[in-house]
């Protein structure tokens, strides 16, 4: 009996030694890894798709300065140098106040419009510890058209110059390369051309991004206006563009039938018809400046 006991103790001791020796994966002794949340970032190269806002926010403390151009219609032919003889221009300043809140200001020479907006991220697509299938942001903006009134004999009010828009950006990054975004919008115009058209315009936009290489992507966006709200002489906006990223800059080169670069214009006042070649070549050039360096906790 004693012998058996001694033998058992021996076996136990040896096996204990053996289990400890067998730990070849050292890190496992620290216990299971803490699960982390991985947020989907870089769904688009910058905070604009072409004309529309993208789901991307300008990072905290970062100023994103954009210069955007839309040249004339390509179908102007060689005489108009395929549109390059004319250009409308917009300066855009976007700033990230917090991780989720971005504000922006812009001025465009077309109709002499000043506009401003704020964009707030409500949901951020993620996997891991915290799962969220989509990202969702809300955009609210206002534009002031400062061009002289066409009819100066009429009593003109300042409020007639104002345009408002509200948008939801609903996006999902399906893979590293492919992102899809839906954007329902409400545009309100204080003054419209005639009583036959609505002051409120509801529209829904669909936009996508497909990366071609690590630094290049193709973007498409289409804005569909629900029937009967705008004058039939206007067309829905369709744009196709390429993003080329070069470190600190993003070049967005695109073809679009929208002349205006503010919501009131590119949603509801497009005179260009793709089928007739009323297409603008244009670009957005983005450069970011880190104004406030982030304080990293820990």
């Amino acid at each position: 009996m004693k012998k058996t006991l001694q033998f058992l103790v021996l076996i136990l001791c040896l096996s204990a030694t053996k289990t400890i020796m067998a730990q070849d994966d050292l890190l496992s002794i620290l216990g299971p890894e803490e699960e982390t949340t991985q947020y989907a970032n870089a769904s688009f190269k910058t905070n604009k798709i072409i004309n529309l806002h993208s789901i991307e926010n300008t990072a905290l403390g970062v100023l994103d300065f954009k210069i955007a151009h839309r040249f004339g219609f390509i179908n102007g032919g060689a005489y108009e140098f395929f549109g390059l003889d004319q250009a409308s221009m917009k300066l855009i300043f976007d700033y990230g106040i917090t991780k989720n809140l971005q504000v922006g200001f812009g001025r465009t020479n077309f109709e002499k419009v000043y506009d401003g907006y704020l964009k707030y991220r409500l949901l951020h697509q993620s996997k891991g510890k915290r799962k969220m299938p989509i990202s969702l942001s809300y955009v609210a903006g206002i534009a002031v058209k400062t061009e002289k009134f066409t009819n100066e004999n009429r009593t003109n009010y300042f409020t007639s110059r104002l345009y408002y828009h509200h948008q939801l950006l609903i996006a999902r990054k399906f893979s590293d390369n492919f992102t899809l975004q839906l954007t329902p919008s409400l545009l309100h115009r204080n003054l419209v051309e005639s009583t036959a058209v609505e002051n409120d315009v509801y529209s829904i936009a669909i936009a996508g991004r497909q990366k071609l290489t690590k630094r290049m992507a193709i973007n498409v966006e289409y804005i569909y206006n629900l029937n009967g709200q705008i004058d039939p002489k206007y067309f829905n906006s369709l744009s196709v563009g390429f993003d080329i990223e070069t470190g600190g800059h993003v070049f967005q080169l695109h073809f679009t039938n929208s002349t205006s670069m503010v919501e009131k214009g590119f949603i509801a006042e497009n005179t260009g018809d793709w089928t007739k070649g009323d297409i603008h070549f244009g670009f957005n050039l983005s450069r970011v400046f880190t104004l406030v360096k982030p304080k990293h906790k820990d």
Binding site: N41, A59, V62, G96, K214, V288
Partner: peptide, 17 residues
């Protein structure tokens, strides 16, 4: 993903590209 940078864009490019 735990690498932190002074410039947000650098961090994004580091992770993505």
């Amino acid at each position: 993903a735990g690498f932190k940078f002074e410039k947000a864009l650098m961090e994004e490019h580091f992770q993505e590209n």
